[in-house]
């Protein structure tokens, strides 16, 4: 048990009625890793996390947290987990400190240690001056930070976060990650996070791309980019005819996106020639460097964040 990996999933499957939410999901997360689950809405990320958190039993397969089976030893598994759900699970009628204290007591943290941890965590997420405020008076960003702090009041080894930055502005998002990184360095946490913001997972150790309940890629961001990534020209044509003309000329390279076109750059030569030829048809242009977004596009042929394809799974 002492050297079991942080998380071990073996062939996890889950259905809701006839809808397949997850199928044959197998992966291992080593201790201390930042593991990102990336995928469009409805890909099955939340379902997977709920299975990990022991609140949803899988239909098939096994899941282990530090060696504890989530179905057979749920209490032990839970003790190791700090969970931040997609939807806030704070009690808005309690104060910041009361929420933290409640969590500490329920997880059996002794009083002296609880006091100390709460003070430290409030400091870490910069909520010390709001400790006596009712949660309903906090902003969305503050609530997120409080939830992350709460997940760590007990001796959590694995921090599980489901879309922790949804609904936050760019600045809160960035500061939230700063807090998480700080806490991670301090405690040697393993972090498992789902997101559909690619820029957030660039710095993780491993990225697992999920689509329609299956793993379609699993590797470090660098390797994924090296294998599948391409550079793209992202452009807004001057008028629809110009756009149609470009799309007709390079049917293999062009993907239509809501606000324009995305053109894969096959080689360096192409970019120069393309711009010389179509420079006048373009109103706005940018070059997308190799990113995980382009990896997702390369593997699935779809955009990650744009609602282009109807999603089939449900994110219950």
């Amino acid at each position: 048990m002492m050297d079991a990996p942080a998380v071990e999933l073996q062939d996890i499957g889950k259905r809701y009625g006839r809808t397949v939410a997850l199928e044959g999901v197998t992966f291992t997360v080593e201790r201390g890793e930042v593991f990102a689950l990336l995928g469009p809405n409805g890909a099955g990320k939340t379902t997977l996390l709920h299975i990990l958190c022991t609140i949803l039993p899988p239909d098939s397969g096994t899941a282990k947290i530090l060696g504890y089976d989530v179905v057979r030893q749920p209490t032990r598994a839970r003790r190791k987990l700090g969970v931040v759900f997609q939807q806030s699970s704070l009690d808005t009628r309690l104060t910041v400190e009361e929420n933290l204290d409640f969590h500490g007591i329920v997880y059996g943290v002794p009083r002296a240690l609880r006091r100390k941890r709460i003070a430290e965590l409030l400091d870490a997420v910069e909520l010390t001056d709001r400790r006596s405020a009712l949660v309903q008076t906090l902003s969305a960003g503050m609530r997120r930070r409080l939830e992350i702090a709460r997940a760590l009041v007990h001796d959590a080894r694995i921090l599980v976060m489901d879309e922790p930055t949804v609904g936050l502005d760019a600045r809160s998002r960035e500061s939230m990650w700063r807090y998480v990184d700080g806490l991670r360095a301090e405690r040697g946490l393993t972090v498992i996070v789902t997101t559909h913001y690619v820029e957030e997972v660039e710095s993780s150790d491993k990225v697992c791309i999920i689509d329609q309940g299956r793993i379609i890629a699993l590797d470090s961001p660098e390797r994924l980019k090296a294998m599948h990534g391409h550079e793209y020209i992202r452009l807004v044509p001057v008028d629809p005819q110009a756009g149609a003309a470009i799309a007709e000329r390079f049917p293999d390279l062009v993907t239509t996106v809501p606000d324009g076109l995305l053109i894969r750059i096959p080689d360096a030569e192409f970019r120069r020639n393309f711009l010389a030829e179509y420079g006048n048809s373009i109103r706005q242009l940018s070059i997308d460097r190799q990113s995980l977004e382009s990896v997702f596009l390369a593997i699935t042929g779809r955009q990650l964040t744009a609602p282009t394809a109807p999603t089939r799974g449900t994110s219950k």
Binding site: C53, T75, R76, R78, F85, S89, D91, H103, Y107
Partner: peptide, 13 residues
């Protein structure tokens, strides 16, 4: 509003 989840993922039976 989600608070139940906080309690259900805790080690409390």
């Amino acid at each position: 509003f989600g608070f139940l989840r906080e309690v259900l993922v805790s080690p409390m039976p």
